[in-house]
Design a protein around this nucleic acid. Sequence first.
DNA 1: GCCAACGTTGGC
DNA 2: GCCAACGTTGGC
Length: 167
Amino acid sequence: MAKVSTRKSRQYWLFKSEPESFSIEDLKAAKDQTTYWDGVRNFQARNMLRDSIQIGDGVLFYHSNVDPLAIVGTARVVKNGYPDHTAFDSKNDHYDPKSSKEDPTWYMVDIRLVQIFETPITRAMLQGVEELEEMVLLQKGSRLSVQPVTTDEWQVIHRLAGLKPSV
DNA sequence: GCCAACGTTGGC
DNA sequence: GCCAACGTTGGC
Protein backbone atom coordinates (compact mmCIF):
# COMPACT_ATOMS: atom_id res chain seq x y z
CA MET A 1 0.00 0.00 0.00
CA ALA A 2 1.28 3.40 -0.93
CA LYS A 3 2.43 5.72 1.78
CA VAL A 4 -0.34 8.12 2.66
CA SER A 5 0.09 11.57 4.02
CA THR A 6 -0.74 11.82 7.70
CA ARG A 7 -2.74 14.98 7.17
CA LYS A 8 -5.35 15.92 4.63
CA SER A 9 -4.73 19.53 3.91
CA ARG A 10 -1.82 21.30 2.36
CA GLN A 11 0.25 23.51 4.60
CA TYR A 12 2.26 26.56 3.74
CA TRP A 13 5.75 27.75 4.54
CA LEU A 14 8.15 30.56 3.84
CA PHE A 15 11.78 29.84 2.97
CA LYS A 16 14.35 32.60 3.19
CA SER A 17 17.35 32.78 0.96
CA GLU A 18 19.99 35.34 0.29
CA PRO A 19 19.83 35.71 -3.48
CA GLU A 20 23.58 36.10 -3.59
CA SER A 21 23.88 32.46 -2.54
CA PHE A 22 20.68 31.07 -4.05
CA SER A 23 17.99 33.13 -5.77
CA ILE A 24 14.68 32.19 -7.30
CA GLU A 25 16.37 32.63 -10.67
CA ASP A 26 18.82 29.94 -9.60
CA LEU A 27 15.86 27.71 -8.81
CA LYS A 28 14.42 28.42 -12.25
CA ALA A 29 17.73 27.47 -13.83
CA ALA A 30 18.13 24.28 -11.80
CA LYS A 31 17.51 20.85 -13.29
CA ASP A 32 13.75 20.23 -13.28
CA GLN A 33 13.52 23.63 -11.54
CA THR A 34 14.04 21.60 -8.40
CA THR A 35 16.55 21.84 -5.58
CA TYR A 36 17.31 20.40 -2.20
CA TRP A 37 17.06 23.03 0.53
CA ASP A 38 20.34 22.50 2.30
CA GLY A 39 22.25 24.40 4.92
CA VAL A 40 19.55 25.00 7.52
CA ARG A 41 21.38 24.90 10.85
CA ASN A 42 18.75 25.90 13.36
CA PHE A 43 16.90 23.33 15.44
CA GLN A 44 13.47 24.88 15.19
CA ALA A 45 13.73 25.08 11.41
CA ARG A 46 15.22 21.58 11.33
CA ASN A 47 12.22 20.19 13.18
CA MET A 48 9.88 21.65 10.58
CA LEU A 49 11.95 20.27 7.71
CA ARG A 50 12.16 16.83 9.31
CA ASP A 51 8.70 16.46 10.83
CA SER A 52 6.14 18.86 9.43
CA ILE A 53 6.83 19.90 5.88
CA GLN A 54 5.30 17.45 3.41
CA ILE A 55 5.08 16.78 -0.29
CA GLY A 56 2.55 19.09 -1.89
CA ASP A 57 2.98 21.90 0.63
CA GLY A 58 3.31 25.43 -0.70
CA VAL A 59 6.42 27.55 -0.19
CA LEU A 60 6.80 31.31 -0.42
CA PHE A 61 10.30 32.10 -1.66
CA TYR A 62 11.72 35.14 0.14
CA HIS A 63 14.88 37.07 -0.71
CA SER A 64 16.65 38.26 2.45
CA ASN A 65 19.59 40.57 3.00
CA VAL A 66 19.05 42.35 -0.28
CA ASP A 67 17.33 45.41 -1.66
CA PRO A 68 14.44 45.03 -2.12
CA LEU A 69 13.49 42.48 0.50
CA ALA A 70 10.63 40.57 -1.08
CA ILE A 71 8.62 37.45 -1.63
CA VAL A 72 9.63 36.71 -5.19
CA GLY A 73 7.60 33.64 -6.04
CA THR A 74 6.36 30.26 -4.94
CA ALA A 75 7.50 26.66 -4.94
CA ARG A 76 6.10 23.30 -4.00
CA VAL A 77 7.55 20.64 -1.75
CA VAL A 78 8.36 17.57 -3.83
CA LYS A 79 10.29 15.48 -1.29
CA ASN A 80 9.78 15.05 2.43
CA GLY A 81 12.54 15.63 4.98
CA TYR A 82 15.74 13.60 4.64
CA PRO A 83 19.28 14.03 5.99
CA ASP A 84 21.19 17.08 4.76
CA HIS A 85 24.30 15.49 3.28
CA THR A 86 26.16 18.80 3.11
CA ALA A 87 26.65 18.48 6.87
CA PHE A 88 28.83 15.40 6.24
CA ASP A 89 31.19 17.12 3.82
CA SER A 90 34.17 18.74 5.52
CA LYS A 91 34.73 20.93 2.47
CA ASN A 92 31.21 22.31 2.54
CA ASP A 93 30.46 25.66 4.16
CA HIS A 94 27.68 23.99 6.13
CA TYR A 95 29.82 21.12 7.39
CA ASP A 96 28.93 19.99 10.90
CA PRO A 97 31.23 17.35 12.40
CA LYS A 98 28.59 16.53 15.02
CA SER A 99 26.18 15.27 12.37
CA SER A 100 26.74 11.75 11.06
CA LYS A 101 25.06 9.53 8.50
CA GLU A 102 24.15 7.13 11.30
CA ASP A 103 22.58 9.87 13.37
CA PRO A 104 21.97 12.95 11.24
CA THR A 105 21.41 16.27 12.95
CA TRP A 106 20.27 18.28 9.95
CA TYR A 107 17.52 17.71 7.42
CA MET A 108 16.30 19.15 4.16
CA VAL A 109 13.40 18.86 1.74
CA ASP A 110 13.25 19.25 -2.02
CA ILE A 111 11.24 22.03 -3.64
CA ARG A 112 10.25 22.74 -7.24
CA LEU A 113 9.54 26.17 -8.68
CA VAL A 114 5.89 26.99 -9.24
CA GLN A 115 6.10 30.59 -10.33
CA ILE A 116 8.15 33.73 -10.18
CA PHE A 117 5.94 36.71 -9.37
CA GLU A 118 5.86 39.29 -12.14
CA THR A 119 6.13 41.91 -9.45
CA PRO A 120 7.90 40.89 -6.24
CA ILE A 121 5.85 41.46 -3.11
CA THR A 122 8.18 43.64 -1.12
CA ARG A 123 8.50 43.60 2.63
CA ALA A 124 7.36 47.23 2.63
CA MET A 125 4.13 46.16 0.93
CA LEU A 126 3.57 43.35 3.42
CA GLN A 127 4.04 45.69 6.34
CA GLY A 128 1.08 47.75 5.32
CA VAL A 129 -1.39 44.87 5.27
CA GLU A 130 -3.51 44.42 8.37
CA GLU A 131 -4.17 40.72 7.67
CA LEU A 132 -0.42 40.07 7.75
CA GLU A 133 0.30 41.70 11.09
CA GLU A 134 0.96 38.34 12.73
CA MET A 135 3.01 36.84 9.95
CA VAL A 136 6.16 35.30 11.42
CA LEU A 137 8.30 37.06 8.84
CA LEU A 138 7.19 40.46 10.08
CA GLN A 139 7.72 39.86 13.79
CA LYS A 140 10.53 41.79 15.40
CA GLY A 141 13.70 39.77 15.70
CA SER A 142 12.33 36.92 13.62
CA ARG A 143 15.31 35.10 12.19
CA LEU A 144 13.86 31.72 11.30
CA SER A 145 14.83 30.80 7.77
CA VAL A 146 11.98 28.31 7.53
CA GLN A 147 8.65 29.54 8.84
CA PRO A 148 5.02 28.46 8.87
CA VAL A 149 2.55 30.54 6.87
CA THR A 150 -1.20 30.40 7.48
CA THR A 151 -3.70 29.65 4.73
CA ASP A 152 -5.01 33.19 5.07
CA GLU A 153 -1.55 34.67 4.69
CA TRP A 154 -0.93 32.46 1.67
CA GLN A 155 -4.09 33.74 0.05
CA VAL A 156 -3.49 37.38 0.90
CA ILE A 157 -0.04 37.22 -0.66
CA HIS A 158 -1.41 35.70 -3.84
CA ARG A 159 -4.01 38.42 -3.96
CA LEU A 160 -1.28 41.05 -3.61
CA ALA A 161 0.53 39.38 -6.49
CA GLY A 162 -2.65 39.62 -8.56
CA LEU A 163 -2.95 35.85 -8.68
CA LYS A 164 -5.35 33.17 -7.65
CA PRO A 165 -3.86 30.98 -4.94
CA SER A 166 -2.14 28.21 -6.82
CA VAL A 167 0.19 25.29 -6.19
C1' DG B 1 27.73 50.01 8.57
C1' DC B 2 25.04 49.60 12.70
C1' DC B 3 22.97 47.05 16.03
C1' DA B 4 19.05 44.32 18.22
C1' DA B 5 17.64 39.79 18.64
C1' DC B 6 18.74 35.34 18.97
C1' DG B 7 21.38 30.87 19.45
C1' DT B 8 25.45 28.60 21.10
C1' DT B 9 29.45 27.90 23.93
C1' DG B 10 31.99 27.27 27.92
C1' DG B 11 33.54 28.59 32.64
C1' DC B 12 32.06 28.11 37.05
C1' DG C 1 22.23 24.67 35.55
C1' DC C 2 23.30 29.50 35.27
C1' DC C 3 24.76 33.16 32.60
C1' DA C 4 28.32 36.11 30.34
C1' DA C 5 30.68 36.21 26.17
C1' DC C 6 30.62 35.56 21.62
C1' DG C 7 29.11 34.81 16.75
C1' DT C 8 25.43 35.18 13.41
C1' DT C 9 21.31 36.86 11.25
C1' DG C 10 19.13 40.15 8.91
C1' DG C 11 16.34 44.54 8.92
C1' DC C 12 17.22 49.21 8.72
